[in-house]
Write a protein that binds this DNA or RNA. Structure first.
Lengths: 335, 335
DNA sequence: AAACAAACTGAAACCGGTTTCACTTCCCGG
DNA sequence: CCGGGAAGTGAAACCGGTTTCAGTTTGTTT
């Protein structure tokens, strides 16, 4: 039975102070006498007062809105990050506003401008699609946080796994099982994560004294089809390999299907490891060994951090390691 | 080099009219002399004027914001709908604001209140988690559209596939292949989609004169684990069946894994059909036969419709059939 | 005890639009 | 040629907050 929305004037009248004072207790900008503060707070409670976001923002205050620019909604990994972000904002007073750049630079630029027009209090990038300088510049205009990527110049405002190390561990897992002919199906060419995972692959092989065979390194696009095509190609050429490290899970599924087409069994004939640990892969046949990224937790951490930045409170970033989750798609290499 | 944001006063000055007139051409509320209208439009172009959303909304105009309440972000089906929505709003002047009820009624209620506080111009539900009366009531306060569900009382404001028919077709597909012992793993108990798919299953069997065996109807939760558990149960009991209709794709994957555990082959021993056609399933081993829902298109249609509703312009809803996509997880029943 | 900084406070201007109101023109039928 | 409704317009009030400005109290310093 909320007759009408209470305004700051209603509160002022009820608490017997001026609206200026109400505004002060609302924003904690200037000391207010304890007695009046209490009266105001009581009045706010009684009338169930919620300040009008628009009036507030118009007058120069916070908009309580956070822009979230996802590199590509529809990717399960990024989506899970979004879920983490949303879950943390729920009930925090802040609201996320999403945009999807769909891997397109122009759209990303435009989305940022739109966000700025809407006076967002903070901006979260899911994946860093813009150049580092550009992001630094944006950060000078509005508090910015990046999740799912690491920028050197904004190290305290990023959270993401160490993809090089994760790629290294994934490859190492295969090497320890005795594999020497290990394929890597890469992710999208210029994608930083893809590059780092590949570097990890190279380091693991090199450290173990296994030469890198360029023919075993395939181009890919982080999707099922490219994993499928790359594997089919290799198989048709009769190229020898006993294990595959795919740049992400869906790509690994493509790899597995291609192997199946050639009557090869996973993991008896060929071991396959993916990356991300999206929900579905624990139910593939056989369940996929993969590198788990704590996506949800990353989202929560990002949301926590941006609120900290906005209010100039200290915040801490958790350590979020990417761990190899061993299931049934990898096994000892046959002697 | 946009020195500062242009305001309506700047436009008024430049066009040599009052700000009232500028507002009029902006909103097309009152006739304005052609000459002045042109002058105003020229001035707006010259100064690259974009009205301040907050001032506008505060003064009672549109907020150009659409609330989108998803029943469960993180579900690939709903996510694809979101993508469709976002893609259509991009560049339309409207902006979507997302919330995730996470299948929780209280959160959903709260999210709606928050949306209303933020003066959204329209509201889109992805999946109908609230009761029909509740949604009708909300619709009386703000234009509302539902995607992924059908409400009788708001038929022109819903888009979604006919789940009963889709469930019927899925089951029919199995029957036509000669199957008579067909399992159905249901979705979440009170979920309308789940109920309708089950009804379709029943109708198909009944029409074909196949009695419904309650033991072949399993409870499920739209997830992989419940598909897995249900199948394991059946197998342990030694219950005879040659085909499974799972309420969605991930559930079907759980079913397949359980069959694999018992050394049963899909589709030679058991046929499996899923629902949704999420991206991954065309790369499972073997690729999954499923019912395709045109999720992206549904999102686009919803976004189009809500803008039409807000501006009281007529809009039309496309016909979006759910089609059985036959791949390799279903085959003729052995005689 | 005088002097001055810090704590508190309310009135009023301001943010950038929309809308009401009052008023002037213009056009048309009778 | 007159009356009346429609077209067209600007001034000013209003939306609900924040912030500046100008004081008034109070508490410390010398």
């Amino acid at each position: 039975m909320t007759s009408k929305k209470a305004t700051i004037d209603d509160i002022a009248k009820l608490a017997n102070v001026s609206k200026s004072t109400v505004s002060r207790v609302l924003n904690d900008t200037t000391p207010v006498h304890e007695e009046k503060r209490a009266a105001v707070e009581a009045a706010m409670k009684e009338l169930n007062f919620k300040p009008n976001v628009f009036a507030r923002s118009l007058a120069g205050g916070q908009s309580k809105t956070i822009g979230v620019l996802s590199q590509h909604l529809g990717s399960p990994f990024y989506d899970t990050i979004s879920e983490g972000i949303i879950s943390h904002f729920t009930g925090s007073g802040y609201w996320p506003m999403f945009a999807d750049s769909n891997d397109d630079l122009t759209i990303a630029d435009q989305a940022v401008e739109n966000f700025l027009d809407r006076k967002i209090d903070g901006l979260i990038f899911i994946g860093a699609m813009l150049s580092e300088e550009k992001i630094v510049e944006i950060n000078s205009r509005v508090p910015t946080f990046i999740v799912g990527a690491k920028l050197d110049s904004l190290a305290k405002q990023c959270i993401g796994v160490d993809n090089e190390l994760a790629g290294y561990n994934a490859t190492k897992h295969l090497i320890e099982l005795g594999h020497r002919w290990i394929v890597h199906v890469k992710g999208i060419q210029d994608h930083l994560d893809a590059i780092h995972r590949f570097e990890g692959y190279r380091r693991a092989l090199t450290e173990s004294g296994i030469p890198i065979d360029p023919e075993l390194v395939c181009e890919g696009l982080f999707d099922g089809q490219s994993g499928y095509d790359a594997t089919m190609d290799l198989l048709k050429k009769g190229k020898k390999f006993t294990a595959v490290f795919a740049a992400n899970d869906i790509c690994a599924m493509g790899v597995k299907l291609a192997l199946h087409r050639h009557a090869l069994t996973v993991p008896d004939d060929v071991s396959v490891i993916g990356f991300d640990d999206q929900d579905e892969v624990s139910f593939t046949v056989p369940p996929l060994t993969t590198v788990r990224q704590p996506a949800f937790e990353m989202g929560v951490a990002a949301a926590t951090a941006i609120i900290g930045m906005i209010n100039k409170k200290p915040y801490s970033l958790p350590e979020l390691p990417a761990e190899v989750t061993v299931r049934e798609s990898t096994a000892k290499a046959k002697p």
